[in-house]
Nucleic acid binder design. Structure first.
Lengths: 215, 215
DNA sequence: ATGTGTGAATTACTTCACAGCG
DNA sequence: CGCTGTGAAGTAATTCACACAT
């Protein structure tokens, strides 16, 4: 059955994980997978996978499982990854540089079209084949390349102002590496990457020899 | 009331965020905060903050709010951040280098005591003042420095084997940057950092002009 | 007044369990 | 049979709403 209700965000957040795992399975030459098998790879129950996928239609075959290639393509289509997404990256410090060089983005529908900074020594040069411009040029570049997403890799102090500029330039989705929760108007999505918090949440358990963790 | 039940993991994962925000408030000279005010900074409801904190005791004062410095120290103590945690970082590529240089870890109880790689050109040299060793030396270093946590910044292909080595060396908590879900025996914690998946989960919404996002 | 702490109510998410298709 | 798709049941997380302390 086609599902009317919007899938909850938890489900949407799991889709990329399914997609990636399917692409690994494909590389391994697997033709089909059961929810069971797929789940085992990523520590998710079979029922959860079936429920999740059922939001988007009847993607599997009873008695057989899911066709790896088909399902992969289907999920990619659902995620909007049949098209390329142009993104800009703000902040070309060590972290920004590592991100700019990382091939994992470009492989999968994400195309970094511009790097931005405020350091005069950097502006005008190229990094990883991408020109570094001044943040003031954001609006122009965003317009020219129809940029709807951005990656923020500036310090905590500058993150909010950078985000404000991005929003003004029409950016609707932001991946923020800075250790602050940034505020955005409704209609704009933000996701945070926060390694320090993740580590700190683990020290909690180490500090008290807590019992068996979940997945 | 002191709470018997273990706080759920969701709550533990929010604590570092509260702590960080409190430390910003402290830098701004704030002496006390209400759950309202704290919540507004990080897009969490006031009720949620009060509930979360109540797992750990009665930390606030009715009619007043929370004392910033006190609460900050209290949360840090809860998280086990009154002590230093020695961690090792595996993988000294561009990402590993960015992580090694990042001061945000060391500022907050996390001390990187060793870098590991397999590239003979790197082994024996220093990076950011930390010696780079061969992964085979992991057990020794882990023992000498009582290392219980690790950061994995190797490729997807090598992540699982590196994790296996870490587990064998006695590491109990792992922050994994590689785009695979790694398997660990029970008793070991893993948290994943996955920027590509986060971006892909946002393209979902951009691709269909979905209505107002949540926080 | 102001703002916490917390049971109760609500909402969200996950798992169960089974009908039904290949 | 094997394995999906899915209502129903069960858990978990969040929010409400109010007694009570300052």
């Amino acid at each position: 059955m086609d599902k009317q209700p919007m899938p909850p965000d938890v489900v949407v957040r799991r889709l990329p994980l399914y997609a990636r795992t399917l692409s690994y399975l494909q590389q391994e030459g697997k033709k089909s997978v059961s929810s069971q098998e797929l789940g085992a790879r990523i520590n998710v129950t079979a029922a959860q996978i079936r429920k999740d996928l059922s939001y988007f239609g009847q993607l599997g075959k009873q008695g057989i499982g899911y066709n790896v290639e088909e399902l992969l393509h289907h999920i990619n289509r659902i995620l909007g990854l049949s098209q390329q997404w142009n993104v800009v990256l703000i902040g070309v410090g060590p972290l920004g540089q590592a991100i700019a060089r990382y091939s994992g983005f470009s492989e999968k529908g994400i195309h970094i079209v511009g790097l931005f900074d405020v350091d005069p020594k950097k502006i005008g040069t190229d990094f990883a084949g991408i020109p570094i411009r001044h943040v003031n040029d954001l609006p122009t570049v965003a317009r020219e390349h129809t940029v709807r997403m951005a990656i923020v890799a500036v310090s905590a102090e500058h993150a909010q102002e950078v985000v404000d500029l991005l929003v003004k330039a029409g950016v609707e989705a932001i991946l923020n590496y800075a250790p602050v929760i940034v505020q955005v108007p409704s209609g704009v999505w933000v996701r945070h990457i926060d390694p320090v918090s993740l580590l700190h949440s683990m020290t909690y358990y180490l500090a008290r020899e807590a019992p068996v963790p979940p997945s």
